[in-house]
Amino acid sequence: MDASPQEFDRVLSSMCTRPHPEARAAAERFLADNPGDPATYPAIADLEDRAVDTLAEVTGLDDPAGYVASGGTEANIQAVRAAREVAESDTPNVVAPESAHFSFNKAADLLGVELRLVPVDDDYRADVDAVGAAVDDDTALVVGVAGTTEFGRVDPIPELGLVADEADACFHVDAAWGGFHLPFTDHDWHFGHAPVDTLTIDPHKVGRAPIPAGGFLARDADTLDRLAVETPYLESTAQATLTGTRSGAGVAGAAAALDAQWSAEYEANHERASGNAAYLADELTDRGYDVVDPELPLVAFSLPEAEFEAARDAGWRLSRTGSGEARIVCMPHVTREMLRTFLETLDAARVGAGV
């Protein structure tokens, strides 16, 4: 095979990154084990339990229930599915801010529930009053985001939790990307801060586990029981995951990444990434770009199309938000030197355009 994987030296907008070396080695070792049948593959089942225990520590969950999913999309779908199973309405709906990940659109389509997307406030966070106005007797789930994909914003999680609680609805927090930054901030975002029922957190993003390694966590085991189906031809008699057969690579890689980095290396990464985001935001502001003040290590800013295309032509992997801002995610592979080189690319494009 003559194809080569993507190098990360010019990847700026992706929420994927290089796996930790120990996670890569563990993934290769358990590549053929199937966590979908834990009775047949007990070693990988033990590693999954270990990963879930650490994710619970990260997210303030005392008695963890959950599993290593394929990613945030699966975890978010499972949250909607679990809420639908306990909803008393025949026409359940899910209320989420318009900043929610597009996986909720998939979930609504697959599960036959209504998705109500409500406006965000002027700082791109969920508008609690708008969420409250959209909730009714048919609401099965309220969603908050802790680290939005486009702007890195953290919704007011405790306040959204109260809205869900008053509506007798389940409450889900999507911390797929932000979950490995937020423990080192003063935000209120997890099971210990609010009446959160389910939570998404992805080791294969900032956690530096190999893909696929998402995380689905639930406050109690009953939630997983609601998702379980019988599996009569396996050694294991039931399965709560959305997928069936799963590679042990994601599970083992997640366990190894967590063992190697929680919590000191993750804290160091957060501090480094936050410093890089602040540096980039200041440099862009000094050059006259309109920059959205970074909350977590993600920088969104206005970028004229000619300069955007010049950056892409120079090999930078760069994307825009739905409203048009360029976005740079300060993942573990993004270094200060990379950002300086990127700024040099923009400077050259501005000179060429006569700016």
Score class of each variant (00 low, 15 high):
42 P>C: 08
113 V>N: 00
258 L>E: 03
186 D>Y: 04
129 D>L: 05
31 L>E: 14
263 S>T: 15
40 T>A: 15
105 N>P: 11
284 L>Y: 03
329 V>P: 05
36 G>F: 04
47 L>S: 04
241 T>K: 12
15 M>C: 15
294 P>N: 09
83 A>M: 10
84 R>N: 10
98 E>H: 14
315 G>V: 08
95 V>G: 00
108 A>Y: 03
288 G>T: 03
303 L>P: 01
179 G>N: 01
304 P>E: 13
82 A>C: 11
201 I>H: 08
37 D>L: 07
57 E>I: 03
188 D>A: 10
157 I>R: 00
271 E>D: 14
126 A>C: 05
77 I>E: 05
78 Q>W: 09
304 P>L: 13
134 A>M: 04
312 R>K: 12
295 E>F: 00
68 V>S: 06
160 L>H: 02
304 P>W: 13
156 P>G: 02
287 R>T: 12
2 D>S: 14
260 A>S: 06
100 A>Y: 06
48 E>C: 09
128 V>Q: 03
64 P>E: 10
94 V>A: 02
255 A>Y: 04
140 A>P: 02
166 E>I: 03
146 A>K: 01
179 G>S: 05
100 A>D: 08
294 P>M: 06
209 A>H: 02
235 E>C: 08
22 E>C: 09
259 D>F: 15
164 A>H: 00
108 A>F: 11
323 S>P: 03
332 P>C: 04
333 H>N: 10
133 A>P: 00
36 G>Y: 02
324 G>K: 02
296 L>Y: 01
4 S>K: 14
67 Y>T: 11
193 H>L: 11
312 R>P: 07
124 Y>I: 03
348 A>K: 12
243 T>H: 14
346 L>K: 01
234 L>Q: 15
29 R>T: 11
76 N>S: 12
292 V>M: 10
122 D>I: 12
123 D>Y: 12
185 T>S: 07
333 H>P: 05
20 H>M: 10
166 E>N: 12
82 A>V: 11
15 M>T: 14
65 A>E: 05
329 V>G: 09
257 A>K: 02
45 A>E: 06
62 D>G: 13
23 A>Y: 06
335 T>F: 05
343 L>I: 03
27 A>P: 08
254 A>H: 11
31 L>I: 14
286 D>T: 08
189 W>R: 02
205 K>E: 14
245 T>Y: 15
58 V>C: 11
273 A>G: 07
62 D>S: 14
134 A>K: 00
314 A>W: 09
60 G>D: 12
